[in-house]
Every structure is written in structure tokens, then in C-alpha cells.
Amino acid sequence: MERRFKNQKWTVRVIKTSPAFFIFLLLSPQASAFTPPSWFKNGTYVTYAIFPGEGEDEKGFNLLLPSLMPPKDIIKFRPYVGDYIKHDALFDVDTYGPTFLTIRLYNVTNSSALVNITLEFRNATLGRSKPIKSLTLSRTLLLNLTDGYYYLNGTRIGMPSFFISTSNLPPKGKIFLNCKPLRERAFACNDLKVSNVSFESKKTVITFVKKFHPPQVKVSLGTLSLTTTKHGNLALTGISWTIYDFDTGLAISLDTITSPEFIALGIICPSTYNHYSAEMNKKLDFSKEYWPYGFVLYETNIQFPKEETGRAPDTPLKYYLILGITLLITSLIRRLRK
């Protein structure tokens, strides 16, 4: 993989090495425990956005289930979809304007944090309603910093999608979304799990905050199959992924079929196609850079390393890479001497 800075370029070439290096990583205290990033503190916020395209028919489609919605928000929605709420039937929110997902941290301790999740729909319609200027859903989840999972009413519902621990990348098979709340409501579905973690080293990712040069970390998820007839006919199948900044572990693009954050808001199937990104990508050299097609990083108070300094990213992964290179060089020197 390759990383570019102003007037500087560094490259890491991955080759075979001895099992001792991997044993070291497994036994390392940094690699064996969930450790949130340094920016994970009270007052931190991050906002992601989806913008419509120029076409009149390019709307977003979001499917909600009343019994999963925050109780205080049901009151706001009742005048528009009262019958759906009464029968706990799936209903849709069509969006013709932007959608903003904002995540805020507070009450952060060594063992837990409260994570407020707010989703705002602009210029949206509910059922046959006239366009509504703004509709919001909001809920606060407990994030256990010991195991790295969200809890809602005592139930573990999944891992946060907006960041990863760069010192402990999620392993293949780890549960990203526990679908127990859905199965309890007559949905047939499997848990959504991590299927692969890889490094993206070819393209620059463009967001409203900044350009993120490679490498980035890509967490791919397995297939989610979800069906129900009790709440209205629904059959949903799909795969998804999230792109993370290598330096900070922050998600810079959310392109998931669903997530613990969305389920906690009552959204079974969010609209994650970004028409604005699609239009912008037509104007770019897509082989070198692109706008993500999902929720794009829009605003945050997180400070990113200054690339013009030419310094390597200050993360535990950097030290693992340096250690790995050192061990490889030592091993090669020993072989040459033999």
C-alpha cells in the first residue's frame, strides 16, 4: 500500500514472514483489547450526509417500523401515519432533500459512553402527506467500551458503524448487527457479520470535510436476508461495507444495508444511495479518486493529522507496520549471512 504526503511518498510492501510476528500481534495488549480512538471524548460529533441529484425523480426511500422507533418520535409521526403505527405496519419516508446522520458523544468514561444518534430528513413525505420541511428521529444508546458493543434496553444490538479501533480491527465473523430485536417482531433474518477487512490503496476518497488519501480501511459485511409478512410484505437481501480513515479510525463513508444505529431509530431499510456523489463522479477521474455512494462525511470537530508535515500516521497500526518491517529486514539479513 502507498501513502502520499506533500513532497513525500512512503510504501509498505507486504511479503511472507514468520508466524512469530502474528503471534506477537495476538498477544500484544494493544491488539487484544477494544480501545477507542484518542478523539473519542465528551462533545465529539460527526455528521454524515446524503444529497439528492438534480433529477426530480431522484428521491430517497426509507422503511420504518413503529415498534422500533423511539417512543417520543412516534408522537411526531402519528398525525401522518396513525394507522400504520396502530397496526405496527411498515411505512416509508420519501426524501426529496438531503438526509443528515449526526452522532454525538457524552458521559464518556473508561468503561462506557452515551452515543446520541439523530437522523434528519429534509423535504420529506410520510404516506400521502404534503412535503414536510424537516423530520427527525433521535435516540441515545449505551456503548460498552469493554466489549465495543451498543446496548439498547439491556440487549446487545451491535457494534458502532462510525468508527473502528485501529489497534483491534474487527475479525471475520464478528457480529456487526444482532437481529434479535427484528426476530422478536416476526422478522426472519440472520445476524449481520463482518466478512472481510482490507486496505484500500488505490484511490483517494473525497468528502465534504477533506480528501482522504490511501490507504483506507474497508470493512465488508456479509449478506443480510430479511423477510416478513406480519408487518407488510418485505423481502430484503444485500451486502454492504464501510470505509474508514487509516489515521483516526473514523468512518468516512457509510454504505450499509442497515446498521445498529438505524435499527435503534426504527429504520429497517435506510436510503443510502447518494445521487450527488454519482453526479460528481462523472466529472472526476474515477480511477484515481471518487465520492462515496453512501452517507458521506459532512462535518465533524475531530482534528485530523496534517498531511503537509510528511509524518506517518500516529496510530498503533503504524508501529505494527514498522515492527513488521524491522523483523522482515532482520530475517532477510540473517538469511543472506547464511
Score class of each variant (00 low, 15 high):
residue 50 I to Y: 01
residue 67 S to P: 01
residue 68 L to S: 03
residue 68 L to R: 02
residue 57 D to M: 13
residue 65 L to Q: 02
residue 54 E to K: 11
residue 19 P to M: 02
residue 63 L to A: 12
residue 31 A to L: 11
residue 48 Y to P: 01
residue 65 L to E: 02
residue 32 S to H: 11
residue 37 P to L: 08
residue 55 G to N: 12
residue 33 A to G: 09
residue 33 A to H: 15
residue 37 P to N: 13
residue 19 P to K: 00
residue 37 P to C: 10
residue 43 G to W: 08
residue 42 N to R: 06
residue 62 N to L: 04
residue 57 D to I: 09
residue 20 A to E: 12
residue 20 A to I: 07
residue 65 L to M: 09
residue 19 P to H: 00
residue 31 A to E: 07
residue 62 N to F: 03
residue 35 T to E: 02
residue 41 K to Y: 04
residue 34 F to C: 03
residue 64 L to Q: 09
residue 35 T to Q: 11
residue 35 T to S: 14
residue 51 F to T: 00
residue 23 I to G: 08
residue 53 G to I: 04
residue 51 F to N: 03
residue 24 F to K: 04
residue 34 F to D: 03
residue 32 S to V: 09
residue 50 I to H: 01
residue 40 F to H: 03
residue 25 L to T: 11
residue 58 E to Q: 11
residue 54 E to A: 12
residue 42 N to A: 14
residue 23 I to A: 14
residue 43 G to H: 06
residue 38 S to W: 06
residue 50 I to L: 13
residue 67 S to N: 05
residue 64 L to T: 04
residue 58 E to R: 08
residue 61 F to P: 02
residue 44 T to N: 02
residue 49 A to I: 04
residue 36 P to N: 09
residue 64 L to I: 15
residue 34 F to R: 10
residue 52 P to I: 02
residue 52 P to W: 05
residue 56 E to D: 08
residue 55 G to T: 13
residue 59 K to M: 08
residue 19 P to L: 02
residue 36 P to V: 14
residue 64 L to V: 15
residue 21 F to R: 00
residue 38 S to Y: 10
residue 53 G to S: 14
